[in-house]
Computed example of a mutant assay.
Amino acid sequence: MPVSINSKTARDKLAPRREPYWSRIQTGLFIGYRKPEQGQGTWIARRRSDDGKQAYQSLGTFPGYDEAVKAANQWANAIDAGVSSKGMTVKAACEHYVKHLALHKGAASERDAEGRFKRLVYDAKIGKVDLSKLRTSDLTAWLAMQVERDEDDAEDEDDLRRAKDSANRNLASLKAALNLALRDRLVATDAGWKTVSKFRDVGRRRDAFLPAPQRKELVNACPADLQRLVTALLLTGARPGELANANVQHLNREQGTLALQGKTGFRVVTLSSAALSFFADCSKAKIANAPLLATEFGQRWNKDSWKKPFKAAAAAAKLPPTAVMYSLRHTAISEMIAAGMDSFVVARLAGTSTAMIDQHYGHLRHDKTRAKLDAVAMF
C-alpha cells in the first residue's frame, strides 16, 4: 500500500524500519525515506538505468521533502552527464586536491593541505568513506572530534577559541577538496557536506560572568573539597589546572605569594589578604610536597574529578547553563578589571597577555572610565 512521505506530519506517522519508504519523482527515479527508532530520518535516492540496473545514493538528512528531491535530481542529472558515482574515497579526493594545488597554487599551499590531511583524514575513519556515501553526520562528527576540550573542560578562553578556529580551517580545506571532486565529476552531489557549518564566533567574549549572589549560591552548593577549589579560583583568577598542580611548598606566607606552573610557564602571584588567609588554612597539617588543594580522598584534582561535581553544584545553585569551571576565572578577572586594576597587573596575575585582557575585558575598564567622565560637569 503506497504511503506518503511528502510532509513531516506524514513521515512522523510512519513505523520505524530499515527499508526506506519510497516515492516516485519521475520515471526511473525514486526518493526514499528511512525512519529510525530514534533521531532524524535519512533520505536515499534510487535510479533505474535503461538496462534495468538499479543505482542507490545515500543523501543524508534534510529539513524537508523538497530539499531531498532536489538532491536526488542533482545526483541523477550528474550520473546522466557522466559523473563517476562510486569508487572514490574521501582520502582519494584529498590526494586529488593536493595534486591540484601543486599544479595551480604552488608548493606552500600543497604542503599546508597535505599536512592537514595526513593528520586528520588519510588514516582516519572519514578517509575511508566512499564519496557517494558521505553523510553530513560524518563531517560534523569529524569536526567535533578536533576540539579537544568542551565547554566543561575549558581552562582558558583562548584554548577553546583556538581549537575551534583550527577546526574551522581544517574543515575549509576538506570542503575545498570535496568541491573539487564535485567539479571534476568524481562525485554526483555535494549533499554530504554542503550544509556542514563551521564553528561560529570563536573569538567572541564569553558572557558566563557570575555575579556575587550566584557565586555565593555556588560555593554553598559545593561539597567541602570542591568548595575549596572553587573559592581558590575566585580569589586568584588562576586556571583550574594551575591550582591543581600547586603544592603546599609553593605558598610563601611571609611574602604573601603563591607560585603557579601552567600553560604559560612558571609565575609567582601576589595574594590578597583574604586569599593568603584561605591558602594558609588549606596548608595546615600538610607536608611540603602535598597538594595545596585536594579531593576528599587526598588526591590531586584534575578535569575528570571536578567535572561532574561542578556540574551538579552549578545545577543545584541554579546557575545558567553557560556556567562552567572556566567561568570562575573569567569572573575573577572581570572583577579585577572592574575594580580599576591595571591590565598589565591583571595579566601577570592571570598568566596571560595584556592583549588578551584588553580584547576580552577592556570593555569593563571603559565602562568604569565612562562613569567617571559622566561625573564631570562640562556645562
Rank of each mutant, 00 (worst) to 15 (best):
G351Q: 06
A332R: 07
G60N: 03
E67Q: 13
A172Q: 13
A285W: 04
D184K: 08
K263V: 09
K216C: 04
D152R: 15
R267H: 09
G32F: 10
E157R: 13
G32V: 10
Q227N: 08
T136G: 09
D150C: 06
G64W: 03
A350D: 12
A188Y: 05
A76N: 04
A177S: 10
A10K: 12
S343K: 04
I333Y: 02
D51N: 11
D150P: 01
K164R: 14
S173H: 05
K91D: 09
P321R: 12
G52H: 08
A323G: 07
V69N: 09
Y33H: 15
T89E: 04
A316R: 15
L131W: 00
A154E: 11
L243G: 12
K8I: 10
A332L: 05
K284G: 00
R18Q: 07
S137G: 00
R119L: 11
L373G: 01
L180W: 14
E95K: 09
M325P: 01
V230T: 14
T369G: 13
P291Q: 14
V230H: 01
D374I: 07
I126H: 00
S327R: 03
S305I: 07
R119I: 11
S7I: 02
V147S: 02
Y122C: 06
E335H: 08
F209H: 11
L292A: 11
L229V: 09
P63I: 09
A108V: 12
P211E: 10
L59N: 03
A317F: 13
R46A: 11
Q74V: 12
S353L: 06
M1K: 08
A355K: 12
P309F: 05
E95N: 01
A177F: 02
L373R: 15
T369S: 11
D80Q: 13
G41Q: 05
P223D: 11
A312V: 15
V376A: 12
W301Y: 14
G32M: 06
S85W: 03
A188R: 12
L293D: 03
A163M: 10
F278L: 03
